[in-house]
């Protein structure tokens, strides 16, 4: 990628990394690469939640944005609501993990829904509640991560490379099991 734009790592001033949620293995590899690249090249690092990077692709709309990423089990999803104001995005409320029906119950006003499979999510949610939703098909991309990271770095914010960890949002199945049955 750097070769493609005629740059070397030396010219890079900061590193942004998507933190998840998403595939556990995927985000683990991404975050490990991000933090170790930053550590080894002594460059500032900034982690960006993948749902925020996803919501960024819907920033041109004045409506609230729901970013949705599939958990990969049944129709469970990770989701979060972002409000866009003057080109600034802020998350409203907690991250959501649950099925589409649960997400539909949270959506009470017209909004934009962004993610892979946005159209099919939108159809199901509108079917539940009748609320008007605009679907935008998108992936959380490297460009959005880089842009959001650059903005945070410019504000003087950064993350510690050694302690940065992925945003899994879910405990591993074994941990859930043990906590439930072996108090």
């Amino acid at each position: 990628m750097l070769k493609g734009v005629g740059l070397t790592l030396n010219k890079v001033q900061g590193i942004g990394v998507g933190l998840g949620p998403g595939s556990w293995t995927g985000i683990r590899v991404g975050v490990t690469v991000g933090k170790m690249l930053a550590y080894a090249s002594e460059k500032p690092l900034c982690g960006v939640p993948s749902l925020e990077a996803l919501a960024w692709s819907a920033r041109d709309h004045s409506l609230p944005v729901y970013a949705v990423i599939s958990v990969g089990v049944g129709d469970a999803v990770y989701a979060a609501r972002y409000n866009v104001k003057n080109d600034e995005m802020s998350r409203v409320g907690d991250y959501f993990i649950g099925d589409i029906k649960g997400l539909a119950a949270l959506i009470t006003e017209p909004c934009v829904l962004v993610g892979t499979g946005a159209a099919s999510y939108t159809e199901k949610i509108t079917g539940e509640s009748g609320i008007k939703i605009k679907a935008i098909e998108a992936n959380p991309g490297g460009a959005a991560v880089a842009f959001l990271a650059a903005r945070r770095l410019a504000r003087g914010e950064s993350d510690d490379a050694l302690s940065l960890t992925p945003l899994y949002l879910k405990e591993s199945t074994a941990k859930v099991f043990v906590n439930k049955y072996k108090p």
């Binding site: 933090k35 960890t165 992925p166 941990k175």
Partner: peptide, 15 residues
């Protein structure tokens, strides 16, 4: 537990 071990590796590797 592979998933728990892999998560811990990511947390510890830099340190």
């Amino acid at each position: 537990v592979p998933e728990i071990a892999a998560r811990r590796h990511t947390e510890s590797i830099g340190y």
